[in-house]
Simulated scan of single mutants.
Amino acid sequence: MKNISLIKKFEILEKEFHKISNSIIQPHIVSNQKKYKTLLKKYRNLEKIVTIYEKYKKKLTALQEANFILKNDSDPEMKEIAFLEKNKILEDLSDIEKKSDNLLFSLFPTGKENRVEDDHRNAIVELRSGTGGDEACLFVEDILRMYIMYFKQVGWKYKILHAQKGGIQGYKEIILDVSGKEEVYGNLKFESGVHRVQRIPKTESQGRVHTSAITVAVLPEIKDIEMKIHISDIKKDTFRSSGSGGQHVNKTESAVRLTHIPTKITVECQEERSQHKNFEKAMNVLRSRIYQNEKEKRLKERSIKRKSLVSTGDRSVKIRTYNYPKGRVTDHRIHKSIYNLVGFMNGNIQEMINFLKLSEKNQ
């Protein structure tokens, strides 16, 4: 019962274990007590994983030996012993896999504790238009402006990784890489979900209020060292950029589309003139999406019942309504309304985020 996915995790964690083993004996680490304690705690957790991995590898070797005897030995008695041994080994492997899964979950959880563990990361923010046609595209642009103004307030930087313009104005889709000194994902994770707007569109001659919606997805940024993606698992396509760039976009296929074959996750990037740079940015987004996908899958498999959807990142959940006629923004997860829509759309969203943080803490 060879679990390829588990082995890959074991290998990554084993490498990290050996790396930390070398680090914690270095004088500059030992002299820094805070850093030393953090690394020592991680070392002890990883040591448990590595010990189990050693047992797992021994069982896999024994399984190979039993299979060899079953296939090549002509002695019926030896085959009978190998057959019984193989069944016992398979039971042991299954038991180790279950224990490993539980240990990995307890040490590196994907529930509430892991959400907090991810809080220190930078973030990938994806905005997409939903129901409402051109009005939804315009609202994507409005929410983008809101976030950019918020980033300026808190001193964060952002880069546009991918942008697809709307039919008339606004954006059908835009993806940002957001970085800062601390808790970028820890603040922005609350923005994941469906954002609904109620207002009179500029194109509405009757003065009727329309309802449109967009989707926001916030993913923790995952570095290359934390998640290795095999190039053989990626299909790469290139095409001509549809964005800005003057004559350049008509001459070279600098835009990149990556498809992760095992998960069918697709990422596009076309903001850079260099195909190489677009590839790097697309890989960055791809790692974050695969990581988030894995987290959500594990939570589903374990049937974890959440008390709230405050920061699960569920993209199908309606989280917030922006009501322009009443000048009100309401977050439906915590039933909180702020009657200063103008200020909110100008980037003053920290108050709402603080309420959401408090709600998550009290779960």
Rank of each mutant, 00 (worst) to 15 (best):
V317D: 11
I24A: 00
L176Q: 09
I349K: 08
L356E: 15
V216M: 13
S205R: 06
V209N: 09
K99Y: 11
N87V: 11
Y171F: 15
A255H: 01
G167I: 09
R208Q: 12
A123F: 04
F108N: 09
K19G: 03
R306N: 06
N250Y: 04
I168H: 05
K235Y: 07
T203Q: 02
N346S: 13
Q153N: 14
H195V: 11
K236D: 04
D142C: 08
Q350F: 10
E280S: 12
F190V: 06
F139D: 12
K58E: 15
N72C: 12
G186P: 02
L40Q: 12
N72E: 15
V184L: 05
I304H: 01
Q350T: 14
T263L: 02
N250S: 08
R273V: 01
Q26E: 13
K99Q: 15
I174H: 05
K172F: 04
K307R: 09
K71F: 04
A255W: 02
E183F: 12
L90R: 04
E191C: 11
S31D: 09
Q198I: 03
Y147F: 14
W156H: 10
E14W: 03
V317S: 10
E11V: 14
L176F: 14
Y158K: 01
R44Y: 04
A217Q: 13
K42M: 05
F68H: 13
S23V: 00
K8E: 15
